[in-house]
């Protein structure tokens, strides 16, 4: 009889376990760990984004330069990056660099992988922005007697910039999400702190929903910025 009773109460417990058992106390207990992870996610994203921007600008410059020896290797780089998964690129560097005799900490390996990955996409974004400038603008620049550098500087880039910013922010969103993959090569960032908490306390719901919540916060900030830039910066012809 009593065994049956226990069985039943157990069932009732299971029924409303979805949120009733959600343990907020343990989340606050682990808050320093999460904030630490958040800090690292933020730092890694920022450093990788800046490096990726530089890579992207250089790659794009090489690609549109028309110099064959620069152009074709860059095209190969962009296509290879775009058609292989980031995780494979990360593992390639993580397991590959030591065989070349280069030993760097995981976090640097991760940043290099993110830089190379996002750099290729950013190069394409910038190129699309430059291509979006109307041909007539370039002709107008030519007939005003501007040389290539002047045309780039005074006519093409100012117009390309507005078109480029919203997709660049979109890429920044992707980059922040991509940093989560670094947890797989044991970089101590936000997702990793969720994994740590799960392995210590076995409370995956609390751990990963908190992690998801923090990512959502970053996402909404960047999304708001992207939407704002979309409204403000893209020049639309009136019709």
């Amino acid at each position: 009889m009593s065994a049956e009773l226990i069985f039943h109460t157990h069932l009732v417990d299971m029924d409303d376990s979805m949120l009733a058992n959600f343990n907020f106390r343990i989340i606050f207990e682990y808050m320093p760990l999460f904030l630490d992870g958040l800090k690292f996610t933020f730092l890694i994203s920022l450093v990788a984004l800046v490096l990726a921007l530089i890579t992207g600008i250089v790659a794009c410059a090489c690609r549109i330069s028309g110099i064959k020896i620069l152009k074709y290797p860059i095209i190969a780089y962009i296509e290879v990056i775009r058609s292989t998964p980031l995780l494979v690129q990360i593992y390639f560097l993580y397991f590959g660099l030591p065989t070349l005799g280069i030993r760097v900490p995981e976090i640097q390996t991760g940043i290099i992988a993110l830089m190379l990955n996002s750099g290729a996409y950013i190069a394409e974004i910038i190129r699309a922005g430059i291509n979006s400038v109307d041909q007539g603008q370039i002709e107008a620049g030519l007939s005003s007697g501007l040389n290539y550098v002047q045309r780039m500087r005074f006519i093409i880039l100012p117009q390309a910039l507005g078109v480029t910013v919203p997709p660049l922010l979109g890429q920044a969103i992707v980059l922040v999400k991509d940093t989560a993959l670094l947890s797989l090569i044991s970089v101590m960032e936000l997702t990793r702190s969720g994994q740590t908490m799960t392995s210590e306390r076995f409370m995956p719901a609390e751990a990963f929903l908190t992690v998801a919540f923090f990512y959502m916060c970053i996402y909404f900030c960047l999304k708001a910025l992207a939407d704002w830039s979309q409204r403000k910066l893209i020049f639309r012809e009136a019709y």
Binding site: T179, G194, P204, Y215, Y219, F220
Partner: peptide, 23 residues
């Protein structure tokens, strides 16, 4: 917003580790 705002790894962990808790 949820699906686009969180990394895919986290979503996999949610499906694989949390869904069992919810039955």
């Amino acid at each position: 917003a949820f699906a686009r705002g969180t990394p895919f790894v986290v979503q996999i962990f949610i499906v694989f580790f949390i869904f069992p808790e919810w039955g």
